[in-house]
Structures are given as C-alpha cells and as structure tokens.
C-alpha cells in the first residue's frame, strides 16, 4: 500500500533517476532518500530558571508572524499593520519565510490541500513555535463543518496554542490573542512544539488520514 501510494503521487522531480557523475560514471539518485532526510525530530530540553525566564520574556516580546493566509480570516491580518491597530507596538512583526517566524496563524477554514502546505511550513519553522487558530473553523469546522474538503479540528493535525473564536474575529480579538499568547510564553507554557514531536505518530496518522497523496518525507526539515 505504501509503495503503491508513493508511486502514484510522487512528483516527477522526486522520481528515482539516473544521473551522470562528473567522472562519467552513472549513479542512481533517489531524491526522497538522498535530497531529503528521513530523520525524525527530537524534543528539545525545556530548561528552568531565571535565564530561561528572561529568554521567554524576549520570545514573548518578539513574535514574528508568518505571512501565510490560509483562509478567509487572513483578511483580518492586514488591518493589524495599519495605524488603527498597529501590532508593531506589541513587538509583533510579519516575516515572509517560515525559517524566520515563530507564530503561525491558521486563519479560518483549512482545506486539505492547504493543510499539506501548512504542515510542511510548520515543520520548517525553528522551535519554539506557536500556532494560533483564528476563527471557529479551526475549532470545530465552523460553517464548513460538513464540507468534504475542509478539516474540522485543527488540534488533531497541529498543536494549537491559542484559539480565537468568532466568525470572523475582529482585529481586536487577534490582538487579544497575541496578548494571551505572550502570557502563556512568559509562564513557560509555550512549548507545544515539543508536544508535536512527542506525539509525532498520532499527528502523522491523523494527517495521513486526510492527505491521501502523501508524497513528501514524514518530517520536512
């Protein structure tokens, strides 16, 4: 079953192919094995003490949000950078690349197709990383609870730190969500990324249940 699925949905650039080496010999390249690592993630050690408290404070005061709108709720994010709400005051900034961001806002409904990209992106972010579920779609499916193509509960696929209820929540609610997230981080509870790693098999089972064309490594480093 695993082999069959892999073959059916494998992207053309990831197929096993013959490549000529610089010295003329022909070698076989399996991109999934050679270009990607199949290594599983390991949980990091959560430290305690005044130094860690200070670092937690810094993490809370410098939240870098990934600019990735997954659903209709992402229309609530642009007002946050306008004069009316101005999230820069609170140390919340937008970043364009997952490598440099800490906060992932799942803005509203999440279709299965987007979920695949979201998982890839989430796994590329450096720990500690935080997920905010925006809108009721991420909590119980919202008005799309019976759709064939949107997931119902986000916390079965990614560990969620803060939920912001509403359809849609206003930008003020988003700011309140950021405040709540800061509180959690300062209390030292912002280590949901570890939870993801510890329950890795459960999360992966859930993800693979809905993503039928799983054609990537288990963990996207």
């Amino acid at each position: 079953m695993e082999e069959e699925r892999k073959d059916k949905f494998l992207a053309p650039e990831n197929e096993i192919r013959q490549v000529a080496a610089p010295d003329g010999s022909i070698i076989e390249v399996d991109p999934l094995e050679d270009y990607f690592t199949q290594e599983r993630p390991k949980p990091y050690k959560v430290r305690k003490g005044p130094v860690e408290n200070f670092l937690n404070w810094a993490r809370a005061e410098s939240l870098w949000v990934l600019g990735f709108g997954t659903g209709c709720g992402s229309i609530e994010i642009p007002p946050l950078v306008t004069p009316r709400y101005d999230m820069f005051r609170f140390g919340v900034q937008m970043r364009a690349t997952p490598r440099q961001s800490n906060v992932f806002i799942i803005s509203g409904y999440l279709s299965v197709k987007t979920l695949k990209r979201v998982i890839r992106t989430y796994e590329q972010m450096p720990s500690p990383k935080y997920v905010m579920g925006l809108g009721s779609c991420t909590i119980n499916g919202g008005m799309y609870f019976d759709s064939y193509n949107t997931i119902n509960r986000l916390d079965h696929y990614l560990p969620v730190d803060v939920y912001i209820a509403g359809c849609m929540p206003r930008p003020e609610a988003l700011l309140a969500g950021f405040a709540k997230l800061k509180e959690l981080i300062k209390e030292g509870k912002g280590h949901k990324a570890n939870e993801y790693v510890e329950n890795f098999d459960w999360y992966k089972d859930n993800q693979k249940k809905v993503i039928n064309d799983w054609n990537m490594p288990d963990y996207n480093w």
Partner: peptide, 19 residues
C-alpha cells in the same frame, strides 16, 4: 502609526539567539 518600541532590535536579537 506608533511603530516598534525603541528597544525592539535588542529583544529580537535575544530571541533569535534563543531559538
């Protein structure tokens, strides 16, 4: 807008090192 706090770059540095 009001803009970032004046000490934001230092906090960003500490946070980046702690990642």
């Amino acid at each position: 807008r009001v803009g970032v706090p004046i000490y934001q770059p230092w906090i960003d540095m500490i946070k980046m090192i702690s990642l």
